[in-house]
Design a protein around this nucleic acid. Sequence first.
DNA 1: TTAATTATTTTTAAGGTCAAAAAAAGTATT
DNA 2: AATACTTTTTTTGACCTTAAAAATAATTAA
Lengths: 407, 407
Amino acid sequence: MAQTDKNNHNSDQREAGRLQVLDAIRSAGTIARIDIAGRTGFSPATVTVITAQLLEAGLIEEVTPEPNEKATGIRRGRPRVSLRLRGQAHRVAGLKVSHNNISVLILDFEGTEILSHEMTLPETRMATPLFCSVLIEAVTQACAKGSFTINDLSGIGVALSGLVDAKRRFVYWSSSLTDRNVNLGAELDSCTPCPVFLDNDANLVAKAEHLFGEGRDVDDFIVVTIEHGVGMGIVLDGEIYRGTRGCGAEFGHTKVQLEGALCQCGQRGCLEAYVGNYALLREANIMDRDRPLPDVPTLFNRAQSGDMMARSIFDRAGRMFAMGLANLVNIFDPKLIILAGERLSFDYLHADTVLEEMRRSVVQVDAPLPEVRVHAWGDHMWAKGAAAYAIEQVSAQAVREASSDAA
Amino acid sequence: MAQTDKNNHNSDQREAGRLQVLDAIRSAGTIARIDIAGRTGFSPATVTVITAQLLEAGLIEEVTPEPNEKATGIRRGRPRVSLRLRGQAHRVAGLKVSHNNISVLILDFEGTEILSHEMTLPETRMATPLFCSVLIEAVTQACAKGSFTINDLSGIGVALSGLVDAKRRFVYWSSSLTDRNVNLGAELDSCTPCPVFLDNDANLVAKAEHLFGEGRDVDDFIVVTIEHGVGMGIVLDGEIYRGTRGCGAEFGHTKVQLEGALCQCGQRGCLEAYVGNYALLREANIMDRDRPLPDVPTLFNRAQSGDMMARSIFDRAGRMFAMGLANLVNIFDPKLIILAGERLSFDYLHADTVLEEMRRSVVQVDAPLPEVRVHAWGDHMWAKGAAAYAIEQVSAQAVREASSDAA
DNA sequence: TTAATTATTTTTAAGGTCAAAAAAAGTATT
DNA sequence: AATACTTTTTTTGACCTTAAAAATAATTAA
């Protein structure tokens, strides 16, 4: 809310069209002008004009069809000329700051992975200046791996767990920082040669789903991530919904029980306090203090091999999760919910029984229920989200330049 | 989702601007062109062009300042010419169908109330044909009161409790209809000389708040209504958010307790089953079967005079409500929440303790919390929402005609 | 009273987008 | 091989919006 650009009739209007076309090309991979017109709603005439400018700016290129390859069915009429993004146009980095380490992913403009890099953190929580220099160091190391430098990057996206106002690049609170209320964008600007973009990690997974994942052809969906905590990203009308202060979509701290279990946020009854990684282990270890459990997969194995205590922990978590999802459906009535996870060990939350319970807890109408897709990403998920955000922002900047050059 | 017009570059684009200007004039009451430019983001030049067309179409008029009245502070420069809606341009009806009766409210184009009318229903639940004829009868009676006929109306808005897809004018379910899945829009079209618009009643209260109420100057807010049940209307970017199937924002059936109290919808643990009117009475009558309570105000009086049982009922309801509101804040991070109610007897839900509990249950950041405004409407609230919707739709139609005439 | 100043509104010239027409680049038919 | 046909792309003329300039209508100062 209040955080969507609108009414910027100033110079924004020409950019908007360019960006829409660029997005259409990105989501399609390769696409002919006529289909861009179909998808975006622009007239073919306008598409011609816009693509000409994007071509001239070097952001896209025409695909010269191989003579043999008439695979797309022999069509009559003037043959289509497909367009695609020009990968070499830009190079961006995506960073995910985790508990113990930073992952860096470098993508080209097309979204192709160039390389990835991991670096161990000196400390879990750092003061702002140290944090900045660690970030830069991680990027520098990654670039070195690919024989280029940080100066060859057009943008850097950073995924943080915590409460982030992405627009203002302001961090209210993050588990990686000892400081609160840090104007991290400004801090990082002074250390890097290229623009840095920040957001909450779950929002960025949603961004990755929108650009590269299950949400590629959908403009309205919700992404729920489960791991240590529970995160959510909301995409409405093709944009991340962030709320007034930039800290909406805190699904994990939605209350599912009055005076319920204690959450790491200090409050009680948060969904995360029933479903999150640490919540499950806490329960397990309360139940059986003599055999402390190291991790959730172990607990899950026990449940599957018939341990009733373990099973009841997952059972309750699943039911709470179903309730949370049902609430999302009741509020948003979305077309699609994506359950995104890095590891498959959390199968229990994707179980048919959970989804069935969700369906039962939803307002019943004679219309198809929202689709729920489970997307098991590799371990790059979070960093890829950050990189996706960087690509999006770099695209906007590039289009801005292309538009003003055209004038 | 998927239910916001976009990409209608066809003829929509000229309408959009006209409509935006019209909305700005409506929300301001009277406003000079230069301020319309400021508010809408259009250039003064465009405002001149658009207002000229709206003037010619008779939708707005210039305010001739009284010679004496230089009240607005002595300004230098060319004096502003204020514009306002021309009330006589259109006349619309808003209908709210309740348990036992229908209220009809007739407004002029400016939103001024011309008259209101109440009619008793023959039955609470009716088959579709009877329902339609009762609706028409109510409108006809109301018009007769004002010495005009239904033919003098430019549109009729209808507020229904239940699950309504406003875009399709389709009713999945309503407490007023015996049938399910009724294409009520089409049914009503065949009985009326003017267009009929339908929506869920809570959505329409949100519409009324946006056009005439506390949301007049806000484009992103949430309205929660409490009465028999609990309703919600979400305004994002100036538009009612309705979800994919048109049945989002079902706040009342959000689950706040696993395996909780039985709700009238047949499910368990719905917020409404703790906070709704009928839920409170149910509890009270379970507790004390010998003295059945007639209504909630009586129960509330008992609580205030120290009856511990009554007090505990309100206490739990309040805490559940606070939890529900906190969840909304955690998900939407809205700028404003409006608690809209017809009667003040529900003070207990607006109590400071409830709001305080909500504030405690929200993700804590060093930024101002969403504002919560309590708006106690008169008994026209629901019908006014329906009328507001009719005004909005009629405006769109009028602008469409003005635009095509201008061409 | 006249000129200067100020603020609002309107006009003008330029660029963006679209519908319709034209051009382009193929396949199908004779 | 020539012509007809089909589909995509580009061009054209018209309209919408804007920035900048001009016109308008007041107040203020001289």
